[in-house]
Amino acid sequence: MKELKEQLINRIKAHFPDITVENNFNYNRFDVSINKESIHSILFYLKDVMGFKHLSDTNCVDWLEEGEFEIVFIVWSPAEKIKIFVRTRIDRNNPVLETLDMIWPQLHTYEREFREMFGIQFTGLEAPDEFILEDWQGPPPYRRDFDTAAFAAETFFERPGREDAEDVREAITKLTGEEIPEFAKKYSR
């Protein structure tokens, strides 16, 4: 398998000399990093020329401290039984990438989700603005700097009587004067 991976890497490098390769995995995988301008070309090449026909998954990772989003495409060759992680990074302050759904149609769905959850704009993506979120006004919620606890505290309110994790039956008793039933006393604090 090691030789096969070397052969595949050399073939890719012959066409894309700028790539960075990571091949220290002891299973059927190697990684390729490329700039965002060449991501379309390499994915087309891998799919149409090298037989990496199946797109297993696509992910977006928010590297907040580095100011970048990393998009990872995991492609699989049914013939060679090898998977490649193809990575590209985009500026977090100006997250724009051209749409890739002409390569694999299912990327259309991924792009809609990344646009909504991470705020990445895909130029040429023709889809309704809303996918999962409805009437969402806040910042993209899957970004690392989106504080879910603060959002919940601002948006929702605590139910009266439960502010301090008080026992629910005791709270009801305090509010309504209703007695704790006999059978429930042993469960009450």
Partner: peptide
């Protein structure tokens, strides 16, 4: 985790 992502078959089958 920095990020986790679940890929289900329905992500492709249910939409595209």
């Amino acid at each position: 985790p920095r990020r986790t992502h679940f890929r289900g078959a329905a992500y492709v089958h249910g939409v595209t």
